[in-house]
Each structure stands twice: as C-alpha cells, then as structure tokens.
C-alpha cells in the first residue's frame, strides 16, 4: 500500500523540528531512518499531516565519545554505529547486539534513536540502553531534558517523549574497566524480532541483568555476584516477575524458559569476559 498524503519538511537544524512540533502537535511526526515509520505509513496505521525529515540534519548526524559515553545523534544509522572503530571495546554490548537488529538492508537506514523512540518491547537497542543505564536527550521549544532509560520507556510502544519533543540523541555509557558484557537472543529467523533477548554486565561487585521481548518494556535487575543454583533461582524469580503473556509467536512459559536459559549462558559468558 501507499502512504496517505503529507507535507514533507527537510529539516536543516533541530530548532526547526522543535518549532514545527510545537506548532503542529500530533499532526507532525519525525522521520529519521523510516524503517518503522514508513512501514506504518504504507499500511496506513498512521496518517500524519506532516513529516519532519531529520535524516540529513547535520547537527543530528553526530557520533562521538563524550563524558564517558558514546553519544549517538538522532540521524545516526545503526550501520554507522556498528562500523564505529573499536566499538567492541567502547560499548561491547552494542557491538554484540547490533548484528541482531533487523537486517543489513534495514540497518543501513534505520537509526539507533528511531528504535529507542519506537520502544518495541522486543527490540534490542532499548534493551541495551536499559541494561547499560543510558540516557535519552530530549529537546523542545520549552527546553532540553535528559531522561534515564528506565524513566523513558513506559510500556508497549510508549515512552516519556512528549508530542512536542524531539529525541536529539542517546548516550550509551562506555565499558567500565574490568567489566564483562554479554548479549543473546532467540528469534525464529535471524533479524526477526526476538522471542526473548537478554543483556548482562558482570563487574567486580555484582551482576546487572536485563531482558526484553517478555514484558511490555525492557526490564533490568541488579544482583550480587551469583552462580550455581543461586543464579538459577534469581533468573527464575526475575523471569516470573516480567508479566509474560502468550501470543502467536510463543507461550509465556516458553519465554520464561528462554530468560532462564539464555540468561544463564549470558551471565556465564559475561563473567568469563571480566578482566
């Protein structure tokens, strides 16, 4: 199908997008890579009157390390982040997760911030941002604010981003010295949405563990260093806490099973990667 008619505005600076979002409200939508939004428009699940195209906005096409984080602007594609030199050392979790994000042909246009904005519960990038305690930078004519990942994601496809706000960038913390990182997921086919995905950080004092694809948003928990049956018990309790539901893809019980199995493997792999 084809999208309904809309005005297209090629945005040259973030202020222009903020001004139009303030003026048009819900009638305007931000278009970055379009790998979700264009499909939604083609299927006419949405029909905004105006698209604010930030895909070629220089100020938003910024990828750099700053203040202990990897700063990823709203126009930066997933492919560009995947090709960032030294990503395996800078943000190991992202390096492990990005190959699972859709397909090469999608990552070439899809943006990191777009995936964060869409907040699909099964998506890898919201899970990584939650696991790493990253931040979302929001901007509007009212000003700028920064939200922690766990405050930003509010539920199924629901975030704290107001109608007049633009996601300007996200920040992923750089790897901590000595910590080990692991990401894993199970999807029916490589590139499909995960039935369940897990991310794990093991450091000297403990474990931070997160799961996606099971509840209505990515969830994280902090544990002391656990192993053996204590780890199994913790994973089981966490899996049950996620409020899993049956759907056409998998049963709630199977998703809990995946959290336990993939989770255990990820914790072990992350522990092995500590130095």
């Amino acid at each position: 199908m084809k999208p309904a008619a809309f005005d297209h505005v090629r945005i040259d600076a973030p202020e222009e997008a903020c001004a139009l979002l303030a003026a048009e409200g819900d009638d305007a939508r931000v278009l970055a890579g379009g790998q979700t939004l264009m499909a939604v428009l083609n299927m006419r699940l949405a029909a905004p009157r105006m698209l604010l195209d930030i895909s070629r906005t220089p100020e938003l096409d910024v990828l750099r390390e700053e203040r202990g984080t990897l700063y990823i602007g709203a126009a930066v594609t997933q492919a560009r982040v995947g090709a960032y030199p030294g990503l395996e050392r800078a943000v190991p979790l992202l390096a492990q997760a990005l190959p699972h994000v859709a397909h090469l042909q999608i990552r070439n246009r899809g943006t990191v911030c777009g995936s964060i904005a869409h907040a699909d519960p099964s998506a890898e990038l919201p899970l990584c941002l939650t696991a790493l305690e990253g931040e979302v930078l929001l901007r509007s004519v009212r000003g700028q604010r920064t939200l922690a990942a766990e405050a930003f994601f509010q539920g199924m496809l629901t975030t704290a981003c107001a109608h007049d706000e633009l996601i300007e960038a996200v920040r992923f913390p750089l790897a901590a010295a000595g910590a080990g990182y692991a990401f894993d997921e199970l999807a029916v086919r490589r590139g499909d949405f995960a039935l369940a995905a897990v991310a794990c950080i093991v450091h000297a004092d403990g474990i931070r563990f997160a799961a996606g694809g099971v509840g209505d948003r990515p969830r994280a928990i902090d544990w002391p260093r656990l192993e053996g049956s204590a780890l199994d018990d913790a994973l089981n309790a966490f899996a049950w806490s996620l409020d899993a539901h049956d759907d056409t893809q998998a049963s709630a019980a199977y998703r809990r099973h995946l959290v336990r199995v993939l989770g255990r493997r990820a914790v072990i792999r992350a522990a092995e990667a500590t130095t």
Binding site: G34, M38, A39, N42, D53, I106, N108, R109
Partner: peptide
C-alpha cells in the same frame, strides 16, 4: 543508495 543496499519501499523519493 549511495552504494549501500536499502529498502526502496521504506524510503521516500524526496530522500
């Protein structure tokens, strides 16, 4: 598009 494979159906002509 500029050398890399992309979905033409998820890209606008104007882009």
């Amino acid at each position: 598009l500029d050398g890399v494979p992309v979905r033409a159906c998820l890209t606008l002509a104007l882009q």
